[in-house]
Design a protein around this nucleic acid. Structure first.
Lengths: 113, 113
DNA sequence: AAATAATATTCCTATATCGGAATATGTCAA
DNA sequence: TTGACATATTCCGATATAGGAATATTATTT
C-alpha cells in the first residue's frame, strides 16, 4: 500500500503547506482563483489543483459567479482537527505553569540550607 | 517534485491515522513498543516505523529502560497545529450561533404577512 | 462566430510512501 | 556463550504525489 491520498481526508489535505496558505487566505471571504494566484504567487494550474484537493475533502466551497469561480474556506471542516489537537492541551506546558515551576525551583534553590 | 516526506514536519507525520492513534496512546505516560503493538493491534515492525517518523519530527520522545524503549508523546510539538486550526475558530459555526440563527429564521417565517 | 478571459485538466517524471516478510541489532539472563 | 526477549532495519512492490509545460474547457463580450 502507498501513502493515503491527499483527498482521503482533511489531515492529508493540509499536509501540503501551500494548501494551508490557501485556506488561510480564503477564510475571511470568498475569492476567485486569480486572486489566490496573485496573492500567494503560485502558478494558476497549481492553484486549481490544490483547490480540487481542498474541495474534495470539503475544506473549501465554491460557487460560480459569471466567469469567475469563488472559493471560500469551509471552517467547519477544520474543527475536527482543532478538536483532535485540543485533546493534548492539558499535556503541553502552559506559560503560566512554567512561570510557577521556575518560581518553585528558585525557591528551593534559595531556601534554608 | 513528489509529496513532502512524512518526516518533513508534524503536519505530514499526523496525516497517517495510525500515527495519530499512537500519539493519543502515548500522551498519558510513556510505554514500551510492545504495549503499542498490543493495544493498537499493529505489527511490531509497523509500530517501529511509525515511531521513527514521529520521533524525527519531534512528536514523541524516547528513553531506554533496560531492554525496553519507552516512548512518550511530546505534546508541545502538537501545539503549533492546535494554534493553526484555532485561527479558524471564529469562522466556524458555533452551536449557540446556529440556535440564534434558527430562531431568527423561524421568526421571519412566522412573522406578520 | 470569434476573440478573450478565467479556470481546469492532462501528460510527464522523480520521489516517497505503507504494508508484508524476513532479518538484523541490541540487551538481559542463565 | 547461548538463548530468549525487545526493537529496528532492509528489501520489495504498488501507488499517489507535486511541479512544469502544454492544452482543454467554460463563460463572456463584441
Amino acid at each position: 500500500m502507498a501513502r493515503a491520498a491527499t483527498t482521503s481526508d482533511p489531515y492529508n489535505a493540509i499536509a501540503e503547506p501551500r494548501r494551508r496558505e490557501i485556506l488561510a487566505f480564503l477564510v475571511v471571504d470568498e475569492k476567485p482563483v486569480g486572486d489566490i494566484v496573485i496573492a500567494l504567487k503560485l502558478d494558476q494550474p497549481s492553484v486549481s489543483k490544490h483547490l480540487r484537493v481542498l474541495r474534495e475533502v470539503g475544506l473549501v466551497r465554491m460557487r460560480r459567479n459569471g466567469r469567475h469561480k469563488l472559493y471560500k474556506t469551509n471552517a467547519d471542516a477544520i474543527k475536527p482537527m482543532y478538536e483532535w489537537t485540543k485533546t493534548f492541551e492539558r499535556y503541553w506546558t502552559h506559560q503560566l505553569m512554567r512561570v510557577k515551576e521556575r518560581a518553585e525551583e528558585k525557591a528551593r534553590g534559595a531556601g534554608p540550607a
